[in-house]
Design a protein around this nucleic acid. Sequence first.
DNA 1: ATCCTATCCTGGCTGC
DNA 2: TGCAGCCAGGATAGGA
Length: 280
Amino acid sequence: MPELPEVETTMRLVAPKLVGRTVVGTDVSWARTLGGLTRPAFARSVTGCTIRALRRRAKQIVLELERDGDEAGALLVHLRMTGRLYVEPADQTAGAYVRASLELDDGRSLRFLDVRKFGRVLYVRDADAALAHLGPEPLEPGFTPESLHAALHTRRRALKPLLLDQTFLAGLGNIYVDESLHRVRLHPLRRSNSVRRPEAEALHGAIQDVLRHAIELQGSSFDRFYRTPEGQPGSYQDEFRVYGRTGKPCPRCGSSIRRLVVGQRGTHICPTCQRTPRRR
DNA sequence: ATCCTATCCTGGCTGC
DNA sequence: TGCAGCCAGGATAGGA
């Protein structure tokens, strides 16, 4: 499922094809993709707008719009679990799972494809306001070992659900949390306020290393869902140490990787490297 | 404050 | 071969 590295990869690869383009039409086959806005209202909002810039915030791609040189809101694209975004010639027949298309002034079309229909393409007047609830970006300078340690101690939650909470830290999902925790030998059920300074520093480093490496490898593709906008799979799945490796040996100690459920999420740990905390 | 459950969705998988 | 039932999973809402 697309997490920060997959979303970053998608954003980087579609951006050059979109910046400077003007939207000349829309086609929405699944209205709920728009998150409540009606199709006509969506069409009125974006048709005639030029895409000024793209950026990523958490797991969302932000398309900044302008109209006649003035700022004109933004599109927030959230791929959720099975969403994909790519650009292709407008005369190419849209696949069965394309939920929304933006026709561009160069004869191409931006396609949002999503098998499970959880993804969203939202039009907002004020992107910053719509994204204000999100926590820090893990690869931005504001995220430091000190800030992570301090933040962990403002809460008493289990580490895994806390790291998945986008208002706590933006961009991590199930895969990269499991991978990060394993690297620093922290159990997903460890209470956040019990994490000591050196552990927080190590966790900070692991999160950044894992995310940077995954971006280099264009994300993880272990099922048929995630592909880059060029249709290529990522290759970080070959670097997984625990995720989806139930029963296989831990690359560090050889113990059999175990799957448990934490916060209703499939969770993968090495039972030797990641000791169960005493007090749940 | 934190945790738990349900909801949204579909295709793939299991079991009969 | 066909089919019912179960499952994953990001985000969010509502209840305990």
